[in-house]
């Protein structure tokens, strides 16, 4: 199974068309995500990991690294198995 980081990177690339990204990259300022893209990214992460994320908390996440941490935390809370 791919790690959370690999899966987050793959979805972000698929949605935003960005190949190279750093953990500290901001989805909006560095990767060019519009507000609509953020909503779709949340939906895609939920589908990929089989989780439900609180929309306010999810949309408050700014960077790729924070997204990985946040998703890993939600997976644990919701009993979803992941590779860290």
């Amino acid at each position: 199974m791919a790690t959370v980081e690999e899966r987050v990177r793959a979805i972000t690339t698929a949605k935003l068309g960005v190949e190279d990204m750093k953990l500290e990259d901001s989805f909006t300022a560095d990767l060019g995500a519009e507000s609509v893209d953020s909503i779709e990214l949340v939906a895609m992460f939920e589908e990929e990991f089989g989780i439900e994320m609180d929309e306010d908390a999810a949309l408050a996440v700014e960077t790729v690294g924070d997204a990985i941490t946040f998703i890993a935390k939600v997976c644990k809370e919701q009993g979803v198995e992941i590779e860290e």
Partner: peptide, 12 residues
């Protein structure tokens, strides 16, 4: 929130 052709949670 109907965005990009699907129903989403949007910004809640």
């Amino acid at each position: 929130w109907f965005i990009e052709g699907i129903v989403t949670k949007g910004f809640g």
